[in-house]
């Protein structure tokens, strides 16, 4: 069934790049986050009167040693980009049902899970491409992301692995929602309802030390926080010491656990939902 999986993946990609307006808009949004939000909310400016050493100390303890706010924000925005990309492409399953394409898939001998897997993997590819563009933008923009000294190929590969896990979690989640929903409006409502709390109850935009206790409790368990923090360590710190390597490994372990849960749940739900299409 590899043939069907790749053919359907190619279909998703064609539909994506043949809609350039959609592609550009979906890219513009995270760039706006970085450039506008990143510049407007540059918290370090509030420290204006403090001596440089004091600022450096705060940045070290609260902002993981980032040299500026955008360096801190970058990891968060890359993660959030993945979240939004997963949402949009996961939801495309609803259009497939609406426009009858799902019926064609269901009457063919492909495995029911293949439908789920193609949606998830196309969503991962789209998310990672978008996150990569953000990564390039924050590096080349003036006073953007300042990579730690000693940033190397291993760090880069690890970043991509984290992005992959993050995309796997969220696309599984959103495809799962889409497979159970027949109405676009309902699915969008649920997705929006999930997205904002996922983003704000995380360390994507701000360090958890600025949060009240209850929010912090949620934020540190949010997969977005694990991903954002790991990306920060990898980009800001440069060559990693033993303790940081352990943190990265631990975060990846947490993300993997989330990914396995989301994937298995999505797999099972899609299998049983798509076996009987009479609900649609």
């Amino acid at each position: 069934m590899k043939t069907a999986f790749f053919a359907l993946l190619v279909r998703e990609m064609k539909k994506w790049y043949r809609t350039p307006v959609f592609f550009i808009v979906s890219m513009a949004q995270p760039i706006i986050w970085v450039v506008l939000f990143g510049s407007a909310f540059d918290i370090t400016r509030l420290f204006g009167n403090l001596p440089p050493q004091a600022i450096a100390a705060i940045m070290n303890t609260e902002f993981m040693g980032a040299k500026n706010y955008i360096s801190f924000l970058s990891g968060g925005i890359m993660t959030v980009t993945i979240l939004f990309a997963s949402m949009v492409s996961g939801m495309s399953l609803i259009w497939d049902r609406r426009f009858g394409y799902l019926a064609k898939l269901m009457v063919s001998p492909i495995r029911r899970e293949t439908v789920f897997m193609t949606k998830v993997f196309s969503s991962i590819i789209k998310g990672i491409v978008q996150a990569s563009i953000i990564f390039v933008v924050v590096i080349i923009m003036p006073s953007g992301l300042i990579l730690g000294s000693g940033f190397g190929i291993v760090d880069l590969l690890t970043i991509y692995f984290v992005l992959f896990l993050c995309a796997l979690i969220f696309s599984s989640l959103f495809v799962m929602i889409a497979v159970r929903t027949t109405k676009w409006e309902t699915a969008m409502g649920i997705a929006n309802f999930l997205n904002l709390p996922l983003m704000f109850a995380s360390t994507a935009l701000f360090p958890s030390s600025a949060m009240p206790g209850w929010l912090k409790f949620i934020a540190v368990r949010n997969p977005i926080s694990y991903a954002a923090n790991t990306l920060r360590i990898l980009t800001i710190k440069g060559s990693l010491s033993g303790a940081l390597i352990n943190t990265v490994m631990l975060n990846i372990a947490y993300l993997s656990a989330y990914a396995v849960i989301a994937l298995v749940a999505g797999f099972i739900i899609s299998y049983f939902t798509l076996t009987d299409t009479s609900y649609s």
Binding site: T3, A4, L8, R11, K15, G100, P109
Partner: peptide, 20 residues
């Protein structure tokens, strides 16, 4: 049940591939 975003030819080839 055809895909509006693909060409006619692509639609058919994709259908064939669903059957391996």
């Amino acid at each position: 049940s055809v895909d509006d975003d693909l060409h006619g030819f692509e639609n058919l080839v994709l259908s064939g591939k669903l059957y391996g």
